[in-house]
C-alpha cells in the first residue's frame, strides 16, 4: 500500500516537473507571464486604497486584513492553477474521450488527468499572495498558517473544479456550468465577507464555498483561532473526499455508459 502511494507520488511529481519544463521552454515569456500576473494583482491595490479612504473598516476588515484576504485569494488561485490547471478543463477531457489514455494506465485516473498542465502565470499569483503576508506584517505564525491555508484553499478550489468538471459524466454542455462555477469562486474570494448578508452569506459557506477557502482561514489567521483552523482542515478533507467520490461515481458511469454521444 505504501509502495503504491510512493509510486503514485513519483509519477505525479514527474508529471508536474514535465509540465513546468514545458512552460520554461520559453524563459522570457515565462518570466513575463509571472511578472505581469504580479502586477495585475497589485493593480487592485488602487481600488482598495480608494475604498479605504472612504471608510476604515469594510465588512469587518482593516486595509491590511483585506490585503491579506486578497493575498490568500491569489495564492489559493495560484496553487490550484499552477499545478492542477487541467482540473479546470476536466469536462473537456471527459467529453473528448481523453480519459481513455489514463484508464489504461495503472495509476490514479483522476490525479493523472488533473496534472497534465502547468500554468506559468499562476506562479505570479502565488508570489503575490505570499508578498501580502509581508504587507500584513510578517510573523512565523502568520506565514505558516498562510502557507497551510494556501494548500487547503487550493485543494478546495481544485476539488470544486473536479466536482463541476465531473458533471460532464452526467450532463451535456456542462462546460458552461463548470466555467461559471469556477469563476464565481474567484469573483467572491477577493471581497470581504462582511459586505454580504443573508442568503448570499449562507451560499458562500456552502454551495460556493469561498468562505471555507478564504474567509474562514483569514479569520483563523487574524484571531489565531485553533477551532477554526481545525474546522478548515476537516472541511477541506471532506470536500476533497467528496470530489474523489463524485469523480469515482462518474467514472463508473463512464465505463458502463451506453450513451454514444458522450464518447465520440
Amino acid at each position: 500500500m505504501l509502495m503504491v502511494v510512493k509510486n503514485q507520488i513519483r509519477c505525479t511529481l514527474l508529471a508536474l516537473k514535465y509540465g513546468i519544463m514545458k512552460e520554461m521552454l520559453n524563459r522570457t515569456s515565462f518570466i513575463s507571464n509571472v511578472l505581469f500576473m504580479i502586477l495585475n494583482n497589485a493593480s487592485m491595490l488602487i481600488q482598495w486604497l480608494v475604498l479605504y479612504s472612504l471608510k476604515d473598516n469594510i465588512g469587518g476588515y482593516s486595509f491590511k486584513e483585506v490585503m491579506l484576504l486578497w493575498g490568500l485569494a491569489a495564492s489559493t488561485y495560484g496553487v490550484s492553477r499552477a499545478f492542477f490547471a487541467s482540473a479546470f478543463k476536466l469536462s473537456d477531457t471527459i467529453n473528448k474521450g481523453k480519459l481513455d489514455a489514463f484508464l489504461v494506465q495503472p495509476k490514479s485516473v483522476l490525479l493523472n488527468a488533473i496534472t497534465t498542465h502547468v500554468s506559468s502565470s499562476a506562479f505570479g499569483d502565488i508570489i503575490f499572495g505570499f508578498a501580502m503576508v509581508f504587507f500584513y506584517g510578517f510573523s512565523l505564525r502568520v506565514f505558516l498558517l498562510f502557507f497551510l491555508f494556501t494548500v487547503t484553499g487550493g485543494l478546495i478550489l481544485v476539488s470544486i473544479a473536479i466536482i463541476l468538471g465531473s458533471l460532464a459524466f452526467f450532463l451535456e454542455n456542462s462546460e458552461i456550468i463548470s466555467d461559471n462555477g469556477n469563476n464565481l469562486m474567484v469573483h467572491f474570494a477577493t471581497y470581504p465577507d462582511g459586505i454580504f448578508k443573508g442568503v448570499t452569506k449562507i451560499l458562500l459557506f456552502t454551495l460556493v464555498p469561498v468562505g471555507l477557502a478564504n474567509y474562514l482561514p483569514i479569520q483563523a489567521i487574524i484571531e489565531f483561532n485553533i477551532t477554526k483552523i481545525v474546522f478548515v482542515l476537516l472541511v477541506t478533507s471532506f470536500i476533497v473526499f467528496l470530489a474523489n467520490l463524485v469523480f469515482k461515481i462518474g467514472l463508473k458511469k463512464y465505463a458502463s455508459t451506453n450513451l454514444m454521444s458522450a464518447r465520440v
Partner: peptide, 21 residues
C-alpha cells in the same frame, strides 16, 4: 448571454460593497 452570469455576479458584488460603504 452566458457571459451575463459573470456580469451579474460582478454587479451584485459591487452593489453589496457600495451598500456596505
Amino acid at each position: 448571454t452566458i457571459g451575463f452570469i459573470t456580469y451579474f455576479v460582478v454587479i451584485f458584488i459591487f452593489a453589496n460593497l457600495w451598500k456596505y460603504i
